[in-house]
Design a protein around this nucleic acid. Sequence first.
DNA 1: CGCAGATCATTCGATATCTAATGATTTCGC
DNA 2: GCGAAATCATTAGATATCGAATGATCTGCG
Lengths: 197, 197
Amino acid sequence: MTDETSGSKPPSRRPTRARAAMREQVDAIFTQWQTERPDIDPSPVHIYGLIGRIQMQCTALIDEALAPFELTRGTYDVLTALRRAGAPYSLSPKQIAQSLLLSGAGLTSRLNKLEAQNYLARLPEPNDRRTLRVQLTSAGETVINEAIPRVFDVQRELLAPLGPEGQQRLMQELMRFADVIDGRQSEIKIDTVPVVE
Amino acid sequence: MTDETSGSKPPSRRPTRARAAMREQVDAIFTQWQTERPDIDPSPVHIYGLIGRIQMQCTALIDEALAPFELTRGTYDVLTALRRAGAPYSLSPKQIAQSLLLSGAGLTSRLNKLEAQNYLARLPEPNDRRTLRVQLTSAGETVINEAIPRVFDVQRELLAPLGPEGQQRLMQELMRFADVIDGRQSEIKIDTVPVVE
DNA sequence: CGCAGATCATTCGATATCTAATGATTTCGC
DNA sequence: GCGAAATCATTAGATATCGAATGATCTGCG
């Protein structure tokens, strides 16, 4: 089950159940690049490789936490957007799509599922018949109120071993990077939508 | 694109648009949770929100860099796996799928595309007719050798403003987090596959 | 007023992925 | 040796997304 992509050297360590799997995977890739393309500087490999792997693991855990509620990350995100908006927990589809960085078509699909689950209703908007008021039903309110703490628990538990200072440092470094990215000319199109919040 | 390795010559300082968009978005969500669910501790929001947004932006930039080669992140990942393996640039489908954390079906689909583009060939494996040797063609070798530096350039350029120490600190914090995640009992299923390396 | 263009949700067709089933081939227990 | 079980790539069917086209409704300019 352990990975070991046809590397240069056979693994010297006993397969004691990958102890630092992500780090080792990323290190191995770094080393392969060094020998295969010594002309290019592979220094970004560590940061991007780790970010990708961390996110995969976290989203997998969140999916697990959401399964008992018959929610996916996608539908959970819609419900949280409504819940965060505060009473009466209603937003227009356009608002939701923008907040989730999702296409209109994608949102329609999520709304259909959630409406079928009776977690939300599409109400008419009195003054503009082009749009809607998407609103949590009381069932939707219940389910999202229960699901939210489970997701936060999973996320907090994962971070806990870092300690408050470790989390603070990680957050600080991520913010610096985020600011740097924002500081670009930034006609960047966003196209995947994994953000759970 | 802009080759700013040294001097202080930002491409264009136009602070009119959102200057710290990610940070502000995440802060806003954090605040909404504080008022809407004061009973739960929303501290994870910053870290996970930033990781998600950072990754989205990075992958969007990489897609852009790959477009001229008619490659997607998915097909690029297959070619890099082969390229990293070293001459003669061949691996079995199973090896590639494991290295990319991809299902067999997903890999078959990527291989079909790349074979149609004449970037790789499926050769028989002499001693085991169940499997194959997937090998870069010379066209595939050429295209991946050109594409790799472009992707690394994009990634490096994005990190550059952090400076060597900033990158070091970010990497260190990410490694700590990755190790913490690995240290769990780890019956975690991985299900999305965005890692470009 | 009244119509041209903007805005909005939805539908449509395409793409990329997953899991499960399939069929070919190899390995192993006896 | 041989047949059952494992291994491997592929196919089939399902899901989630996207961009573009569609149709309904609003807005603003003459």
